[in-house]
């Protein structure tokens, strides 16, 4: 069958957008009514989705492979942790600082990208990822060192204006994460359609050609790393509020970076919803493989599933879903607009 063509800006398009938003809102509301531990799981999924979206900006759209994003995640988490525990700040107020610090770190990590490329750049990001837990352990007066930093539940109480109590902090964080995820997705979408977004994709596809065409590589790379780090740092900040127990070797090692990369590619790199799908996969796949078989067998199955995805669904689940939907409905730009990238 021929797909239905919908022009952007038309009434049908608006209708689709509103239907999409309504569906998302419905799903969120449904999630909020589940048992507390499911709400927690979904919150974790949303936090992961934000983190993977951050990685998507650098690795998916700009082609700068980063195996050190666990450092941004950790920096965001520890910023919130230290501010709440040592300085008694209210958790929500720590978010801007966490995001800012991660943006700065991202910018700094982006600087070597000017000279170093490809797998060699991945090594630089590896260095950052490996250094983070060690630095946290070194400065234990600030971070609690290897023992970790524990944020007690009363310090994570929802703000007074919500009328929620400490035991209800789970549902509060659920909605905050949902809002943060929504904002992140909107931001990513607008970014990828902007000039910077086109520059990012040009850099990924062929850096030299991009430079020859006038893309300022230095600006693009450092800005992208800064933004990428900032978004993953936001996720880290929320993560600290979710888990309350930060440990450098428990949650912020290279293995976390591997989880993020896995989620990105399972979900679909350089797609908007890929990170969300990937987050679901990364959080729930271990449950499935553990149900099928316990212990080491689940590890074997997990590895096998990853390989299968690469062979059967290389654009990730979101990519496949996008192509499938594309058979029924296509959104084309309005006649008066330029081509979308």
């Amino acid at each position: 069958m021929t797909p239905i063509h919908v022009r952007t800006g038309s009434a049908a398009h608006r209708g689709l957008q509103i239907a999409g938003l309504a569906a998302a809102a419905g799903a969120l509301l449904l999630g909020a009514t589940m048992e507390a531990f499911r709400v927690g799981q979904l919150t974790n999924v949303m936090i992961f989705a934000i983190a993977i979206s951050g990685l998507n900006l650098a690795t998916g759209y700009t082609g700068l492979l980063s195996i050190g994003h666990s450092a941004f995640f950790g920096l965001g988490a520890y910023t919130t942790g230290v501010m709440v525990v040592t300085y008694g700040a209210a958790p929500m107020t720590t978010i801007p600082l966490a995001v800012l610090l991660c943006a700065v770190l991202g910018f700094v990590v982006g600087l070597p990208a000017l000279r170093i490329r490809g797998l060699y750049l991945a090594l630089v990001t590896l260095a950052v990822g490996v250094a983070f837990p060690e630095v946290v352990r070194r400065f234990e007066d600030l971070t609690g060192g290897a023992a970790g930093l524990v944020i007690r539940s009363r310090q994570l109480a929802p703000p007074e204006w919500t009328g929620l109590t400490v035991p209800q902090r789970g549902i509060w964080l659920y909605w905050v994460s949902a809002a943060a995820l929504l904002i992140t997705l909107v931001l990513v979408r607008n970014l990828t359609r902007s000039r910077l977004g086109i520059a990012m994709i040009a850099t990924r596809d062929n850096e030299i050609a991009a430079a020859a065409s006038g893309v300022r590589l230095a600006t693009v790379k450092t800005t992208v790393f800064g933004l990428s780090g900032a978004v993953t740092g936001l996720a880290g900040s929320l993560f600290a509020m979710y888990v309350g127990a930060l440990s450098p070797d428990g949650s912020f090692t290279l293995l976390k970076s591997i989880e993020l990369i896995t989620g990105l590619f399972l979900g679909g790199a350089a797609t908007l919803f890929g990170p969300v799908v990937g987050a679901f996969a990364v959080v729930y796949l271990p449950y499935f493989t553990a149900d099928l078989a316990s212990g080491h067998v689940s590890g074997v199955i997990f590895g096998a599933v990853l390989i299968a995805i690469v062979f059967l669904m290389p654009e990730g689940i979101a990519g496949v879903a996008g192509r499938f939907l594309g058979r029924f409905i296509r959104i084309a730009p309005h006649e008066n607009q330029g081509e979308r990238p």
Partner: peptide, 18 residues
């Protein structure tokens, strides 16, 4: 199983209790 991971432990305990 929590794979020695604090956030999985938290999720597990929620599930175990509820």
């Amino acid at each position: 199983d929590d794979a020695f991971n604090p956030e999985k432990a938290k999720a597990n305990v929620g599930e175990l209790i509820q």
